[in-house]
Nucleic acid binder design. Structure first.
Length: 617
DNA sequence: TGCCACTGTCATTCC
DNA sequence: TAGGAATGACAGTGG
């Protein structure tokens, strides 16, 4: 009992606490029902009921459509759909394939059959809104509530009808042409094709322009009567709605196109936008696109799309081929990247590639040495450096990344004026990540990893200083790397005095020679390396030969030894008439050319003489 | 302070 | 013949 009391007491406390919390939630805008599971379940059930009701409505509408169409029959003479004869009438045995096809799915329940007027009324009640968007310009349109019941010639052949979605008085055609067209439209295959075409077209083309006076005039010969299938009885109500009304506004199409770029080529898209007449001015992006996409998404997609369009618009002109001059003239600061290609091509024949083209921008792409803060020499310093050229030495690779920025140098002003926009364009990506220090033009190379840049790396070369001092209106890399023709053209475009011309030519010559020297040294090093390799191989070969020689000498000695032993053995077997062996000192074995072996007495002159002298025979 | 490697430059030759 | 590549030689610079 006590336990129960405690539990109840604690439960009461909890409930009070929960109430307090709920009150707080109410203050925060959340109602108590939000936390009520039963309430949420009820909401869920209500939602499901609503969905079921919608489905039922949809099904009912489809049934109504079927019932309605069951009451219709295609008049082969007029091409119109007329009320079907009373159900008591026998089914026409000569019903056309078209009728069979079109009525194949229709209900044959004659008990539900309605009169034509009833059908009209039912349709008017069924589609009071969807079919009757009533823009002010169409207020006088007759009987806008029953477009479904219009004859094909009323529906299919009026661009005004198609474009505005409003049934306007049809423009009459010649009877023959009209009849022929109606016959064509009566063909089920054609209707199917028209359906397909219409769906495709609606997806891609049938969206309106912003209010365009000419858009609603029937002056679009290419505008297809693709919405003719409106009258196609085989279409479901949804299809009909799609066919006749799902003509999205430009905002919606932009949204779709923006979100699904692959849907249509942008160029085609733009062209279509321009050429497509306004179909339904009563639509608005908010009213239609908002059904599928929140406004924010629409705006986002619209902005994306417009951005893409802008990019495309901007890209296209840029794809025009530039001449060398144009490339080099675009931006002195960026000319390296462009010149690199040219330079690479230039050096393709060269066996080196030493020219350190890629290095500067790899380390510091798009970065100017002038932006590194080491720039800013006083005139006296420049003169000093010029007088002591070595002090201004810098990595040659830096030369290619040299940028004469107009705010720092007057040297490149003319070129920079020509290329202001490309520079801005190419600098944009860097602006986002730009280091403030870098922007302020102070030290710290952005891509220096291990050690700070050498002082020489950020200095100007002598030629750069000279060019600056003489106000040469080109960058050094331009002067050096331009092809001869372009270089001459550049020279002719600018009026330079003798000193400037001489300096420019010297710069070009020195720059070329610098690269050549580098290539030469690299080649020399390669030759040295190659010769060293060759030397090593030759040494190895010599060692092999020496080894082989020693082996041969050893073998030869062994063979001599064996021969000597064999000789002695043979010699010892020889005997004279008395059976005495021959003395090796007195005789020797000699072999004649035919292989015969002779025992020849040795001719030991001195010894013989002495022997003879001592013991004459 | 001398050595050494690297680099720029000049003069020359060759293509 | 001009332009450029190739190369030996010299000199400056920095480690």
């Amino acid at each position: 009992m006590m336990m129960e009391m405690e539990v109840m007491h604690s439960t009461q406390k909890d409930m009070d606490l929960i109430d307090i919390l709920w009150n707080q939630d109410i203050d925060l805008g959340a109602r108590r029902e939000v936390f009520d599971i039963n309430h949420r379940q009820k909401e869920h059930e209500l939602r499901r009921q609503r969905e079921l009701e919608e489905e039922k409505k949809l099904h009912l509408m489809q049934e109504q459509e079927k019932a309605l169409l069951a009451q219709l029959q295609l008049d082969e003479e007029t091409g119109e759909y007329i009320p079907r004869p009373p159900p008591s009438a026998p089914l026409q045995p000569t019903i056309t394939p078209l009728a069979v096809t079109q009525n194949a799915g229709f209900t044959q329940d004659t008990g539900d059959s309605m009169s034509f007027d009833e059908c009209l009324q039912l349709l008017a009640e069924t589609f009071p809104v969807e079919q009757t968007p009533t823009p002010p310009v169409c207020l006088d349109a007759p009987d806008v509530s029953v477009p479904m019941m219009m004859s094909p010639k009323q529906l299919a052949l009026s661009p005004d009808t198609l474009s505005s979605g409003q049934p306007t008085p049809p423009q009459r055609m010649s009877p023959d042409l009209e009849e022929a067209l109606l016959e064509l439209l009566s063909l089920p295959e054609l209707q199917q094709c028209l359906n397909m075409q219409m769906e495709d077209t609606l997806q891609t083309t049938t969206y309106p322009l912003p209010a365009n006076a000419e858009a609603q005039t029937p002056s679009y010969p290419n505008y297809p009567p693709v919405q003719a299938p409106i009258f196609n009885p085989l279409n479901s109500i949804n299809d009909v709605k799609t066919n006749s009304l799902n003509v999205g506004p430009a905002e919606f199409m932009n949204t779709v196109d923006g979100c699904v770029p692959s849907m249509a080529p942008s160029n085609a898209f733009r062209q279509i936008k321009v050429d497509t007449p306004q179909v339904d001015t009563s639509f608005s992006g908010e009213g239609f696109g908002g059904v599928f996409y929140p406004a924010a998404e629409q705006d986002e997609c619209k902005s994306q799309h417009s951005q893409e369009e802008n990019e495309i618009m901007c890209d296209s002109p840029n794809k025009v081929a530039f001449t060398h001059m144009e490339l080099y003239s675009l931006s002195p600061g960026d000319s390296f990247d462009r010149s690199k290609q040219s330079l690479t091509a230039e050096h393709l024949d060269s066996d080196s590639g030493v020219s350190t083209n890629g290095s500067p921008n790899e380390r510091s792409p798009g970065r100017s040495v002038y932006g590194s803060g080491s720039f800013g020499y006083s005139d006296s310093e420049m003169e000093e450096m010029d007088q002591n050229p070595g002090s201004a030495q810098s990595d040659y690779s830096e030369m290619f990344s040299l940028n004469f920025e107009p705010d720092h140098l007057t040297v490149s002003e003319p070129v920079s004026e020509m290329t202001e926009q490309p520079q801005e364009h190419e600098k944009k990506p860097d602006q986002g990540n730009a280091d403030p220090e870098e922007d302020s033009g102070h030290d710290r190379a952005p891509f220096t990893k291990d050690k700070p840049k050498k002082r020489s790396d950020v200095r100007l070369t002598r030629d750069e200083l000279r060019a600056k001092s003489l106000n040469i209106p080109f960058t050094v890399d331009m002067i050096i790397n331009l092809p001869v023709d372009d270089f001459n053209e550049l020279m002719s475009k600018h009026q330079l005095n003798e000193a400037q011309l001489a300096l420019v030519r010297d710069i070009r010559r020195r720059g070329k020679n610098k690269v050549a020297a580098q290539n030469c040294r690299k080649r020399k090093m390669e030759n040295i390396v190659g010769l060293e390799g060759e030397l090593d191989s030759l040494k190895e070969e010599r060692d092999c030969l020496l080894d082989e020689k020693s082996k041969n000498v050893t073998s030869l000695k062994e063979m001599k030894r064996q021969l000597n032993s064999l000789y002695l053995e043979v010699f010892s077997m020889l005997r004279d008439e008395k059976g005495n062996s021959y003395s090796t000192s007195d005789y020797s074995l000699q072999q004649s050319t035919d292989g015969t072996v002779f025992l020849v007495p040795r001719v030991k002159k001195t010894f013989r003489r002495g022997e003879n002298h001592l013991s004459p025979l």
